[in-house]
Design a protein around this nucleic acid. Sequence first.
RNA 1: GGAGGGAUUCCCGAGUUGGCCAAAGGGGGCAGACUGUAAAUCUGCUGGCGAUGCCUUCGGAGGUUCGAAUCCUCCUCCCUCCA
Length: 404
Amino acid sequence: MDSLNLEEQLAAIKRGVGDVFPEEELVEKLKRSLAEKRPLRVKLGVDPTATDLHLGHMVPLLKLKTFQDLGHQAVLIIGDYTAMLGDPSGRNKARPQLTHDQVMANCRTYEEQAFKILDRSRTEVVFNGSWFSKMHFTDVIALLSRMTLARMLEREDFANRYNNELPIGLHELVYPLMQGYDSAMVRADVEMGGMDQKFNILVGRDIQRELGQEPQVGVCVPILLGTDGVEKMSKSLGNYIAIQDGPSEMYGKTMSIPDELMDMYFELLTEVPGRELEEIRTGLAKGTHHPRNVKRRLAREIVARFHGPEAAKEAEEEFDLVFIKGELPEDMPKLSLGSESIWIVELLRLAGFASSNGEGRRLIQGGGVRIDGQQVADVDLEWIPEDGAVIQVGKRRFIKVALK
RNA sequence: GGAGGGAUUCCCGAGUUGGCCAAAGGGGGCAGACUGUAAAUCUGCUGGCGAUGCCUUCGGAGGUUCGAAUCCUCCUCCCUCCA
């Protein structure tokens, strides 16, 4: 794996990358690394602010994995202290502050999901609390004195907030310094991050320089857009594909992304070689590739990455069955009922398809409810449960009735 | 510390001469048609309740009134300007 030459390494690193700065320094570092047979220390800092990760979180991790596969040393920094502040990058308001306990509680699931991608045995994991918790206020002042307000206000997010008269918490100004300090503490050669991390990574270079270290090189990956194709992928917007989604769910969500997003997803989330991607692009442009089939390939690649090839194949078969052939899925959740009649709206609630009677009513009135393929028109329907009957809501929600 | 502005339903945002307000409009979401579970487009729905009515909602607590998102008092939070 470490036998790759400079050009091959560079190509692998730059695939799907948004920005490398400065690139000449990366080349220098790689050359030296090859000559001295000394792996580069590649840092990625993550703040365990959430418990369930999605594909957007995976993009930098996948790039870190690339470095790892090239024989470099992955350094994963768990930002137990930085998470308490919340990274202001790209934000139009301050993040909620978490307590250290909350952060530590998130850590376990975070790592678990991150190591679906990274090779745990070859990853150095460090908590930044291991140095921040020991700092004195005098140390903090020394750190703060390395930054000026003017520089902070060069940042678009802060500048916007400032100009729009939105609040900027002082603690938020500290964040980039902490992240930069992390780089110095682990003597990073390279720091990975999303495009929104550019400023923070540059601060890291400054701090390293001031502490007499060679500055790190920044490698920024693009921000993954969510399934709506407009906003960045995020849990709060609901446009995400979770790492913990099952194969069918993950496959289906991928199929539902806008076509324009396919290229980005292929590049950032799969290992399909660049040459092949080029062929897919021209095929789509010329109309020789059907977009749907290209997307199926994409969905397969993604599911295979997190659940294995076998699961990907099964997910595809089920998808084809349900949505292309219009048949019922093989595995449906079961709902056990007694044999006495039940009000249809009540049934929808029991099945979890509606959270209130009102919502159930609306689904029926909107024509979205079917029993064994028959549209339900009557809101007051009293239905006598039949064993094996299939209740369907919309195109993708099914449940099978089982009599007690 | 002083002066002023504001808090509305998932979000943004109307509504403040008290009733016609479960509250305009937009966004988002859900469902239907069309399709490739894509996009675009069109249509309907979008507080709760087995429900021609009842209940809860317009930052919080009280009050005025037959009746308050709208008026009064106090409180909380946020923003701006001056220091």
